[in-house]
Design a protein around this nucleic acid. Structure first.
Lengths: 225, 225
DNA sequence: TAAAAATTGTGATTTATCTCACAATATAAC
DNA sequence: GTTATATTGTGAGATAAATCACAATTTTTA
């Protein structure tokens, strides 16, 4: 019980670099909380004194835009959430909400900083993660703006299949409005494109379950915009 | 001459945290290169063995999109360029091109890694810079998609005035096509909006020089989309 | 300095997508 | 299990901006 982080199966790449003592001190300064679908994990504008780490589940990062909420990205484990806040002004610049039941570890910020300062391997892993995020957001920025809705929805579906659920058959647990806010389209357009994909025999949908039946075609739509 | 980095006036926040010896070793492993307007500093797809640091000038980061080039952002000194490559797969994932005459310091990657590993204050500053970049790209993502071209062009102009040139009168050294690729609009639309802004007495343009004459109005356009 | 190339300006037309409106489901609450 | 609430489906019309097609500049090159 005392060394829960040491023996945690969902360790971050960074946490794997910790020594036994460091990992033990992490266990003491780490609180794991369960969130249900729809629960707010981090709320934009509030003060933050912890580093959050997504141990399991699925979450969305979103920002209040001038007109409506913008879903910036979907994050899967194992990822740190809200690092920019940790190194910034302590006010959360965006919100994080659970899409499915999720477990989040809240780590004391001073311990986290101490680990960064004393363990170069640990901080290097954090740097790597941040850099990956930067690249991803650049790429997303290109896609968002140069593809039309069909291509962007295809991207999202392929991302769900290949990177998140690792299966061509998966549930869609966010509403179409959220998907719209993720790919910059209206709720109605998402609905229409879903219907098109079903009619074109690219998808099969029953309830919340989606099955990709013609992945080739979906990939073609993704890359052709 | 030997300690050029120690006494450099354009030091990064991170480099300010270095000890005298560290800074001396940086001087030895750092090559400063001048680039003219239009010169390519980092080229997408090529192999990178150095960390680049923008000492002076102005550059754009751009990525080849499915249809056309996407300008991701404009970067001013003092910033590290291509950090994601440093910590990633060594292949540059984006290009960097000089917008005006720029000086870039190329730092040996193994020394850079050593500094990160041995100087926690240094690595902390790098972390802070990366996090800032992440937040900025999130915000940009919201703006890009929820504002129309007038609002987005207003954003760019205000950014130039307030953050880059620190004056309401400045030259526009990138072509309208680039501005279009930055705010996701066609070249023609940018041209039209510029004309509108002049007609509405928000801007005065003569040649490449732009003067913001009604900043209030420009700010209103920026926040109202 | 002239010729060539690149950039910008502007009109007419087309288009993907938004918005509005309401019907049809699905999900939650009682 | 029935009502209330939230989500999705779909048509018709409105619209910001893209595209196309040239003319007018400006900048670069020879």
């Amino acid at each position: 019980m005392e060394n829960k982080c040491t023996f945690c199966d969902y360790k971050s790449a960074a946490a794997r670099k910790l020594t036994l003592e460091e990992s033990a001190s992490l266990s003491i300064n780490c609180l794991t909380v369960k969130f249900k679908k729809g629960d707010s994990i981090i709320k934009q504008g509030t003060y933050s004194t912890n580093v959050a780490y997504l141990r399991s589940g699925l979450v969305k990062i979103h920002i209040d835009g001038p007109y409506h909420v913008q879903v910036v990205r979907i994050v899967k484990p194992s990822s740190y959430l809200g690092l920019p806040t940790t190194f910034g002004d302590k006010i959360n610049q965006y919100s994080v909400t659970a899409i499915e039941e999720s477990e989040v570890c809240f780590i004391d910020i001073s311990l986290f900083r101490k680990l960064l300062a004393t363990n170069p391997d640990f901080s290097n892993q954090i740097l790597i993660e941040l850099c990956k995020g930067e690249l991803e957001s650049y790429k997303k920025c290109v896609n968002r703006t140069q593809k039309q809705t069909r291509g962007k929805l295809a991207d999202v579906l392929l991302d769900f299949a290949d990177n998140i659920y690792h299966s061509d058959c998966f549930p869609i647990l966010i509403k179409q409005e959220d998907i719209g806010n993720l790919v910059d389209a209206s709720r109605e357009t998402i609905s229409r494109v879903f219907s098109e994909f079903v009619k074109d025999e690219i998808l099969k949908i029953s309830g919340k379950k989606v099955e990709i039946v013609n992945k080739q075609k979906l990939k073609r739509i993704s890359s052709n915009g």
